[in-house]
């Protein structure tokens, strides 16, 4: 409605695996250009599968997926684990997307420096992944996703493995990056609180086979701060999302302060 034309539209998308598991069924979802969309749902409901379908890493077995501008824009993907190449230092890890595209080292210097600057890792170019903390590795992973300036950033529970303090910090950093880059973000999470804090819209999934049970618009300014976490509106959104989650069958959410 407010955020513009759909970037991608999923119509009746379903995915069954050869193992007999049906991960998704009758999934309808419009992703709007420029929005921060959270996919919230119980474990195993097919959120990762939906994300992989959007990324083009796997094809749906039913339904179709249409891109607004005829083609898939550049996509950045952040996995639940940092998924860095352990044999390469930070610089070369972030260089990967550009290198695969044939960008020369010299030409890559500037975008890489910018991407590392954005995630606050300037000065760590020469460090190897194992010399970094979990949060720093995740930042490298985000820098790698951003370095090619993707039109669409897909994140699959990127902060789930991190401690609370780091997670809150990275939540804030991600919101800042999002407003700087104006890219569309699809963010998979287990956490009601994370989704309500970050998103402009939440798509709540039902239990398996997954489909969108309800969408919740968060009509708040996109720039959020710690004040927002304490506001009554935030509490309301959390309650609504939580109710939607438990309204579905076998719902499960993480309970945290």
């Amino acid at each position: 409605m407010s955020a513009g034309a759909p970037l991608v539209r999923l119509t009746g998308v379903g995915k069954s695996f050869t193992t007999g598991v049906t991960a998704l069924k009758d999934l309808y979802l419009d992703v709007r250009t420029g929005e921060f969309l959270s996919l919230l749902g119980p474990s195993g409901c097919g959120k990762s599968t939906a994300l992989r379908i959007i990324a083009g890493l796997t094809a749906p077995t039913q339904g179709q997926i249409d891109w607004g501008q005829t083609e898939r824009p550049g996509v950045g993907f952040v996995f639940q684990d940092p998924t860095l190449m352990p044999w390469a230092d930070v610089w070369r890890n972030v260089y990967l997307p550009l290198r695969l595209r044939g960008v020369a080292r010299a030409a890559a210097q500037k975008p890489i420096a910018e991407a590392l600057g954005m995630v606050g890792l300037t000065g760590f170019e020469k460090a190897y992944p194992r010399e970094l903390s979990g949060g720093m590795k995740m930042r490298v992973s985000i820098a790698r996703a951003l370095v090619s300036r993707p039109g669409l950033l897909l994140m699959d529970e990127p902060f789930a493995a991190l401690d609370e303090i780091t997670r809150l910090k990275l939540n804030n950093d991600l919101l800042r990056l999002k407003s700087e880059l104006k890219t569309t973000v699809i963010f998979v999470t287990h956490s009601v609180y994370e989704s309500a804090f970050m998103s402009t819209r939440i798509a709540v999934f039902s239990g398996r086979p997954g489909r969108v049970a309800e969408t919740i618009d968060i009509s708040e300014p996109a720039a959020r701060d710690e004040e927002f976490r304490l506001s009554a509106a935030y509490g309301d959104y959390c309650r609504r999302a939580s109710a939607a989650l438990h309204g579905g069958s076998n719902g499960r959410s993480r309970h945290e302060p």
Binding site: A55, L57, F77, F79, D81, M85, L96, P97, R99, L100
Partner: peptide, 25 residues
């Protein structure tokens, strides 16, 4: 790491690139 393989697919890496930059190391 199959996630890294996915990442290479995402960036449309050729088989040769995948071999040199990923599988061999």
């Amino acid at each position: 790491d199959h996630n890294l393989v996915d990442l290479f697919d995402l960036y449309r890496a050729s088989r040769f690139q995948q071999l040199i930059f990923l599988r061999l190391p």
